[in-house]
């Protein structure tokens, strides 16, 4: 009888501890899950708008939360690269002699369909840039999710306010809403597919983004191939490596 009560007490305590998980904890765990020491991916971006469908393929490398390189591999944009290093963004075009740095409002321009440059290159360390708070729970496609509000603490972020929906079951992002300072909804993110890879790492492998300012358009980013912990050249994330 005593043992049964003890087990019941222990279970209740665990449940209470789980329920008491803070928004900071959830976001910290999100960052941890989405940040890789080294990562190589290949994927496809499909943009649909009033003019039809556009499809581009790419390969991308990342190191930690700050270094990121993407290279387009489809015929039309073959060889074009976007490099993020030391919080700076650079564009490389095979037929241009100059590397083009991107700053300020230029980062809001479309890289591909509804996806802007800052969307794909925003680093992690979310808690350094946002105040987060738990808004409650909400059902997202049949999954019980935490609803978390993130309010920017600096102007140096693409979206001053974000609302995230994170599955309570596996602490994985399932949807997000990005807002302007005025409160206007700018973008919707819908996580379509999640996969587990070697080492138990979980990744979002298909995400749809809708820019609410571009009527009737949406962009799907799909990861087709993943290599966690690949061997990377030391100078991969440098301007020299772009040429």
């Amino acid at each position: 009888m005593f043992m049964r009560n003890l087990i019941l007490f222990a279970l209740l305590m665990l449940a209470a501890m789980a329920g008491a998980q803070s928004a900071e904890d959830i976001v910290r765990e999100l960052d941890r899950m989405q940040t890789f020491d080294r990562l190589y991916t290949e994927g496809t971006m499909i943009s649909t708008d009033r003019f039809g469908e556009k499809r581009s393929t790419y390969r991308a490398w990342s190191r930690g939360a700050r270094d990121f390189l993407i290279e387009f591999t489809n015929v039309e944009e073959r060889g074009q690269k976007v490099l993020r290093v030391d919080d700076e963004l650079y564009l490389f075009y095979p037929d241009a002699e100059d590397i083009i740095p991107m700053h300020g409002s230029a980062l809001k321009q479309s890289l591909f369909g509804d996806v802007s440059y800052e969307d794909i290159t925003e680093g992690r360390n979310t808690l350094d840039k946002y105040d987060v708070g738990l808004m409650g729970s909400e059902d997202v496609k049949g999954l019980d999710c935490w609803k978390i509000e993130m309010t920017a603490t600096s102007r140096d972020v693409p979206y001053p306010r974000q609302v995230l929906y994170v599955s309570k079951q596996d602490n994985i992002l399932r949807a997000a809403e990005y807002y302007a300072r005025s409160g206007r909804l700018l973008k919707l993110v819908d996580v379509k597919k999640v996969e587990m890879f070697a080492g138990g790492r979980i990744m979002l492998t298909e995400v749809e983004m809708q820019d609410e300012l571009r009527r009737g358009s949406s962009t799907v980013m799909r990861i087709d191939k993943v290599n966690v912990e690949p061997v990377l050249r030391d100078d991969l994330f440098s301007l020299r490596s772009l040429y």
């Binding site: 943009s47 003019f51 556009k54 581009s56 387009f72 039309e76 944009e77 074009q80 564009l91 075009y93 037929d95 241009a96 002699e97 100059d98 083009i100 591909f112």
Partner: peptide
Amino acid sequence: GKFTVLSQSGSRGSNAYT
């Protein structure tokens, strides 16, 4: 003199030429 132009392309992507 040289200059590089960045523009939207007919493939609905972007491109730059010097």
